[in-house]
Design a binder for these strands. Structure first.
Lengths: 194, 194
DNA sequence: AGGTTAATTGACTTGTCAATCAACAAAAAC
DNA sequence: GTTTTTGTTGATTGACAAGTCAATTAACCT
């Protein structure tokens, strides 16, 4: 049965399964067995490729963060004008891919993981810094010296709206989320002009 | 050794110990043994009074939420003017008691608990609704019909700023947090006036 | 004094799960 | 055609933790 070149395929499947299981369970209390079963392999294989549950979790985090980063870059590439760039970042944060219940649940638990696992914290910190930096650059032409402060505010607002999604039973509404954040932006810009 | 009327004392001690341990561990992965030891009792006693780990966690949540609610009410009682009322709510959210690392860590994990335990979700939902309602009432004289929308935005911003505290290694800075939120408020009010 | 009740615990049961290991299958290399 | 490498798993181990129980101590009541 063994075919060659399985490693990347299995790893990818396990990472994806881990995200799904964490999202479904809404907790990091998922067994390697659950993840492996969903990926269609044995627990031993999961350990074979990742060495430990923690490593697998970290790989899952990296995957989610990478997806998000790619989405932001993609949206930025086609965005026009400073305000368009900000909107691109916000919209990417609430894109259907990132704003699904299971993904939000996984994010929430990655925050928890970051409390205990230094490497997880580092990953999240890097993400946050990059978001902050992206927002600041996009805001610079609009808000000048106040750009960093505004970026902080908008970044926190994005996180907050995201977090609240974890509580509501309703289906996620990305458009409404974007509208909320963009309204805050416009109000800040109006303040700027005056 | 047994003195009478221990129940409320033990329960309180266990609840407090649970919050501390959850905050310290940064995760719900704390054993009843750890909590009991910190409270100075045996694991059996913890089960005797609470019946299950989950019930103990729910009691801890209720305690944190009650503390927060009391702080908000207290601040509202002495606040003057509509803007003062908003500031009171915000300041209570970032008061030294609520903005300590361990408490923030506990909050974060209560969000996680709410993913799995319906009653935990109900508790958090009630808190959020009350915060929303308080903010809306305070904002009504300032923002009129836009009060609900603004309350939503400010509420999410509070949550976001709070969440970010869970990641930084720095000591919490409640004043800066309040400033961030109040800046957003002022900017929205300025928009209103124009 | 004797019975009831609250407080308290150590020992035990039961279950679970991460991680390991020994073994097997097939492709590749020689 | 044997040997090595890669993929794969069932079975096992060792640790740990939630929840139970029977037994103990002391206060309270009458």
């Amino acid at each position: 049965m063994p075919k060659l070149g399985m490693e990347p395929i299995r790893k990818a499947a396990l990472v994806k399964a881990a995200i799904v299981e964490i999202g479904r369970a809404g907790s990091l209390d998922v067994t390697v067995g659950q993840i492996a079963r969903r990926a269609g392999v044995s627990t031993a294989l999961a350990h074979h490729y990742f060495g430990s549950k923690e490593t697998l979790f970290l790989a899952a985090m990296r995957h989610v963060l990478a997806l998000y980063g790619a989405e932001v870059r993609g949206a930025l590439a086609v965005a026009r004008g400073p305000r368009g760039r900000v909107q691109a970042i916000v919209a990417a944060s609430f894109s259907p891919a990132n704003f699904r219940r299971e993904v939000v649940g996984a994010w929430l638990n990655f925050y928890v993981l970051a409390q205990t696992v230094p490497q997880a914290r580092r990953l999240l910190t890097v993400y946050q810094r990059r978001l902050q930096s992206n927002l600041t650059h996009a805001l610079r032409p609009l808000a000048g010296a106040r750009a960093p402060d505004l970026a902080l505010r908008l970044g926190a607002l994005i996180d907050g709206v995201y977090l609240r999604q974890a509580l509501t039973t309703d289906a996620p509404d990305g458009a409404a989320a974007v509208a909320t954040v963009m309204a805050a932006l416009d109000c800040a810009l109006q303040e700027e002009r005056s």
